[in-house]
Amino acid sequence: MFSNRMFNILVPIISVFLGLVAGAIIMLGFGYNPIRGYIALIDGAFGNAYFTGETIRRVTPYILTGLAVAFAFRAGLFNIGAEGQVIVGWLAAVWVGSSMEAPMIIHLPLAILAAAVAGGLWGFVPGILKAKLGVHEVIITIMMNYIALFLTNHLIRNVLTETKDTTDRVLESASLASNWIMEITSFSRLHWGLLIALAAAVIMWFLLEKTTTGYELRSVGYNRHASEYAGMKVGKNIVLAMVISGGFAGLAGAMEGLGTFGYMPTHSSFTNIGFDGIAVALLGGNAAFGTVIAAFLFGVLKEGSLNMPTEAGVPSELVEIVIALIIFFVASSYIIRWALLSLKKEGK
């Protein structure tokens, strides 16, 4: 028989495979050559040093928003608000990064910390409302997303600048960008942030699996009432989970603000980094390392898709469809398990 652990690894792999097959069928249906399409995708992701650098750059915030959503999921909460937390984190990082002067060893950590705190604060509101008043976190986080979007635009136009549409650039001492990385990747926007994202994944794994706090968080996620009966403070754990989740998402904002862009423009709509984090977390099975792998996959698909129109004539949105189908297959893992088991039985 298959063990549970094996299912947990097999299901995402089969789902990705099925998703790509479905994408190929769609390309065939519209008269494209699927092999050329997927070669264009891989070229677009790894074809040269620049593309590779851009792909890893795109993966970096996905890891963090994936971790944010996964962390909340593990405590039984659904954080749709990662999007808003990214936006406030971005602004906080740029604000600190551009408005004060300090040596790098203080300035950079401070700017990164500001992003985490801002994101955490944005997660605290739905957390405390859920814990104290039982208000559904989904609806509050959706509302907080809009507030973040409009509020940051307002602050950029009226407080950080005088009616301009972008903030000043962050100072050298608060920047994650590096000339050395830029040179080896033919001037892509890759930056040091990947190390922070990977460190965050390790921290999440350690916190959830190796500490009492993590045990309590997971316990609350499994069964709120049993945890309360066992003497855990459910409310405290809910708030904590949302704050940490928001902190991760805030860091993703810092990656954009201090790394990729070095400033913050006003946004007319959402960045989608937070919403994509939901898909990343789901594919990664809400575990730290699964999320990292899923973030890489999504980064490759998304960055590579940009090359598909030029090299194979396929609209890049094909990849969105593939991603949606992968999520469906992961969600319907029951049917994949059932199919695997019946295959196994016939084989005997």
Binding site: F30, P315, E317, L325, A331, Y334
Partner: peptide
């Protein structure tokens, strides 16, 4: 029927609709 997590399936619907809509628009 497939007993999928309903939130996850809903998220997939959102991705799929937008992907399909824009894909076909470009097509």
């Amino acid at each position: 029927t497939f007993r999928a997590d309903q939130v996850v399936s809903g998220v997939a619907i959102n991705f799929l609709a937008l992907g399909l809509g824009v894909f076909l628009t470009k097509q």
